[in-house]
Structures are given as structure tokens and as C-alpha cells.
Amino acid sequence: MVTGEDALFDLEPAEAAHPGFAALCELPLEELMATDWAEALRPVEDQLRDVLAYVSGRAADGSQVLPAASNLLRAFSQPLADVKVLLLGQDPYPTPGHAVGLSFAVSPTTRPIPRSLSNIYRELHDDLGLPPRVHGDLSAWSDQGVLLLNRILSVEARNAGSHRNKGWEAITTAAVTAVANRTDASGRRIPLVAILWGKDAEAVVPLLAGAPSVVSAHPSPLSASRGFFGSKPFSRTNELLVQQGADPVDWELPAL
């Protein structure tokens, strides 16, 4: 099974020895993501191949596509079966060196961290009393079953939103639907809470099959003061998980 520790998915935004965007178009789904994600996304494989071809074409034409090919599908490296929280973002950070394939996260070495993430840390402190970190590595959350998924999985450097309406929406719609409709052996829904920040994220509520959601304004500097601060998303999410019989998330990030 593919995990976040395998060579395809790096914490750093560098390409390292990865073959690049063009090779992604040819690899089987099982080499691009966890096995159960490959099965869940099989119905949209053709659409995924199309959008990977578009991304590869833009890179071949000289555009700087973010994140690196090694991290493009990183959100799907952790097993679908382990997901208990969906934290949905918009599209990757367009600043070179920032996007790492997990929504809101950056490389452990990125300084300063993006302002949206700084606002998330401020709310984390106000909500749970946890210390803000100087780094933006959120992999400790994804390791616990927090799916850090952007609605759009690629972007061109310094051009926010540049890969909207290129095909990613169909892939992430299928991903959200797959997460929301999981059942256990007895047919009961597997616990899930969605954290939806901003209108783009809130728009997926109809896909959640009744799973509870924690909705607020986006943590960006433009909107954080209009409903994000004070929304207590972390404690509310844990309460909703416990109500469903699931373990809460330990939201404290390790210090580097």
C-alpha cells in the first residue's frame, strides 16, 4: 500500500529523483495513491488522466506548476479507510516553495509561514490553548486521519486559481463523495467530520451524505475576522467525532 512515507511523496517541494509530471500520466493509479483511493477514484480515472495531461503540458510549455510532481497527489497517500476528518482547502499556495500537496500546509523549512496558516494557528491557540508553531508541517494531522484536500490540486506560480475548471473539480468531488459514503461491515457509516472554511469549501455540503460539518469563514487575512476567529473548529470537530464513537484528533503539532 502506498503511504506518505514512500518515495513518491516528499515533505520537501523539490522534485528530487521523481520523474516529473509527464510520468504521472502513465503510472497506474496504485502507484499514484493508496490502494483504496485508487479503487475509489477508478470511475474518474479518465478525467484524472486528462487533468494530469493538462498539468504536464503546462509544465512542458515552461510554466512553473505547483506543487512538485512528487506531491501533486499527496493528499491521497494516506489510506481512504483511515480518514475521519475532511479539511477542505481551495487551491495550492501559488508562492514558489509553499505548496506541498496538503491543504494549508507548507514545507517544514518554509519561513515565514503563509498568513492563512498563521491565522489557523492563532485560532488553534484560542480554541484549545495549543502553542502556535513556527513551521507549517501539518503531516501530523494527516497521519491521524485528517484529509488535507484542496478542491483544486495544482496551480501556476504567482497565479492563484489558474487551474480552476481544468478538471480537478471532478476528481475532488469523487474523493469527497467516496469519503462521505464509506460504511463498515455492518453497513453503518464510518465516522466523519468535515471542516469547511469559506464558500468554495461549504459548497461540498451536498456531497457529505449527512456527515456533520464545521463551517466558517476562510482563515485568509481578507476574511478571518468575519467569522473564522472564534469559530472553535478544532474542539467542535473533536466533539462531533466523539459523538460518533471515534477518537478525537490530537491537534498539537510537534515542535521542530
Rank of each mutant, 00 (worst) to 15 (best):
Ser216Cys: 13
Leu208Gly: 10
Pro212Met: 04
Thr110Leu: 15
Val134Gln: 12
Glu156Arg: 11
Asn150Leu: 09
Arg133Ala: 05
Ser116Cys: 14
Ala185Ile: 05
Leu130Ile: 15
Ala211Gly: 12
Val214Lys: 10
Leu102Asn: 03
Ile171Gly: 00
Pro108Ala: 09
Arg133Asn: 03
Val214Trp: 06
Pro112Ala: 08
Ser118Val: 15
Asp126His: 10
Leu102Thr: 04
Pro132His: 10
Asn150Val: 10
Gly198His: 01
Trp168Gln: 02
Leu128His: 10
His125Phe: 13
Lys166Ala: 12
His135Tyr: 00
Ile171Val: 15
Thr183Arg: 14
Trp168Ala: 04
Asn119Glu: 01
Arg115Ala: 14
Thr183Gln: 08
Val205Gln: 15
His125Val: 09
Thr109Val: 06
Ala99His: 06
Arg158Ala: 04
Lys166Asp: 02
Leu196Gly: 04
Ala99Lys: 08
Leu124Met: 11
His135Ser: 07
Ile195Ser: 06
Val100Asp: 09
Pro112Tyr: 06
Ala99Thr: 09
Ile113Trp: 01
Ala140Pro: 00
Ala194Asn: 02
Val205Thr: 15
Asn181Tyr: 01
Thr173Phe: 03
Pro114Lys: 04
Lys166Cys: 13
Pro131Ala: 15
Val193Ser: 09
Asp137Tyr: 03
Ser154Thr: 08
Gly136Asp: 01
Thr109Met: 06
Leu196Lys: 06
Leu124Trp: 08
Leu148Ser: 00
Asp137Met: 04
Val193Thr: 13
Ala203Ile: 05
Gly145Asn: 06
Val215Glu: 13
His163Glu: 15
Ser139Gln: 10
Thr109Tyr: 12
Val100Ser: 01
Leu192Ala: 09
Ser142Asp: 13
Tyr121Gln: 12
Arg158Leu: 12
Val106Asn: 09
Thr173Glu: 14
Pro108Asn: 07
Gly187Val: 02
Lys166Arg: 12
Pro112His: 04
Arg111Trp: 05
Ala211Asp: 02
Asp127Asn: 09
Ser162Cys: 05
Asp200Met: 15
Asp126Pro: 00
Ala99Asp: 07
Gly198Phe: 00
Leu128Phe: 12
Val155Pro: 05
Ala180Thr: 01
Ser162Ile: 03
Tyr121Arg: 03
Ala140Val: 01
Gln144Asn: 04
Glu156Cys: 11
Ser142Glu: 11
Leu207Thr: 11
Ser116Tyr: 14
Val204Tyr: 08
Leu207Asp: 14
Thr172Trp: 02
Ala170Thr: 10
Leu192Asp: 09
Asp127Pro: 10
Gly210Ala: 14
Ile171Trp: 02
Val205Trp: 02
Arg111Asp: 10
Val193Tyr: 04
Thr109Lys: 08
Asp200Cys: 11
Ala203Gln: 07
Leu208His: 11
Gly161Cys: 07
Pro108Arg: 08
Ser103Tyr: 01
Trp197Lys: 13
Ala180Met: 01
Val106Glu: 01
Asp126Glu: 14
Glu169Asp: 06
Gly210Leu: 13
Arg188Tyr: 11
Gly129Gln: 05
Gly198Pro: 03
Arg122Ser: 13
Ile113Val: 05
Ala105Cys: 07
Trp197Glu: 15
Leu124Phe: 08
Leu124Val: 10
Ile171Asn: 03
